[in-house]
Design a protein around this nucleic acid. Sequence first.
DNA 1: ATGTTC
Length: 468
Amino acid sequence: MNLTGNDLKTIGFTQGKAIGFALDIIKKEYAALKQEDQLILLRQVLENPSAFIDDEKLSPIVKELLKPADDTIALEESGKSYKIYGAEAIEEGALNQMAIAMRLPVTVAGALMPDAHQGYGLPIGGVLATKNAVIPYGVGVDIGCRMCMTIYDLPPAILEEKKDEFKKMLVNNTKFGTATFKKPKDHEVLERTEFKELSIVRQMKDRAWQQIGSSGGGNHFVEFGIVEILSPVNEFNLPVGEYIALLSHSGSRGLGANIARHYTQIAMDNCKLPQEAKHLAWLDLDTEAGQEYWLAMNLAGDYASACHHQIHERMAIGLRETPLAMIENHHNFAWKEKDILGNDIIVHRKGATPAGEGVLGIIPGSMASPGFIVRGKGLAASINSASHGAGRLMSRTKAKQTILPGHVNKVLTQAGVELIGSGLDEAPMAYKDIHQVMEHQKDLVEVLGSFMPKIVRMCGDERFKEVD
DNA sequence: ATGTTC
């Protein structure tokens, strides 16, 4: 009577390959032993495999036992199909990343927006719907990065007439880069229990308090400009015409960045994926880490919103005006939504604007081109999404190497834009043509109004302007 | 995006 796989399992073997080798070797080499002695031998091998590493007969079993468990999750052979908007203007790197994301076993649907470009894990401009799983890098590092616009009942002409006063308001009421307010405003978001209950969030409490109301760097901005309401039927009951508006773009600062870093690491440690997909590691929402990330992500989103509200509040005080309307939206976030059949899905928008039917949003252009107030059309193929801007035409490095300061200044002058701060990597010519991008997504959103920047503040000094 | 790679 020969040993069976089940006999080996009862003494503690778990790996199929090791069991196979063991049965084979016992049969060939140890047939003379009594069955109970065969089991004693195998138990000894199992308990201390290293002691048998040089054993001529038993080493194949040992090698198998000592091999690290391969817990890599395989990608699906063929990826699910997804819709690409404006494919001809999207770089190959972004398409490759999206193709990999569509092969994750948790993926149920995806779409690529016309401003897409390569990112970390999921491309910027990527929308990914998953089943009960959240991908920290599907949300992005700047959790809750968002837009906020307030429209004022002020005549556009005063932006030019009182330009210095508006510039002063921007300089005094916004903080960029590492700068923060000497006396940060308090906000109820800082009282949230997540600051006590989640360790990574608790560690960030002081910095969150310090950084609230600040804007950070990169492509973040605060700007005054002219809104033109184009549609007589709008949610704000505003007559068609021109208004002054304040537009801000920023996220959750160090708080969100550290939440993202922390939970991405946990995801990558627990969800091993092939090399090309490793940054798409997910957290199962039924796990403790998944639930923690969800809470922390939502806190970071609310914190980002609070930062915008404080910026707009400071400006409203400076203007001594009450806003006529406020429009705002996240574009780096994940939401619990329903698919067309009513199933629960997790929708990641990493640099994508929510565009469900009737949902309002802001899609900015560049510092010298218009942005748009949009109303979503709720197109299922786009997973109720649209672009989050024009999208980069060139990398930051390439922009800094090739764009001439004098050229930037000329374009700004022609557009009637006054710029405070910024670097060449944010120059208008580093971005795609927003009009083309809007054309590619006319099925996704309806344009209610436009916004032309006039006085723009970004991170950075003004040195490059003097080089001309 | 980020005290810019613990």
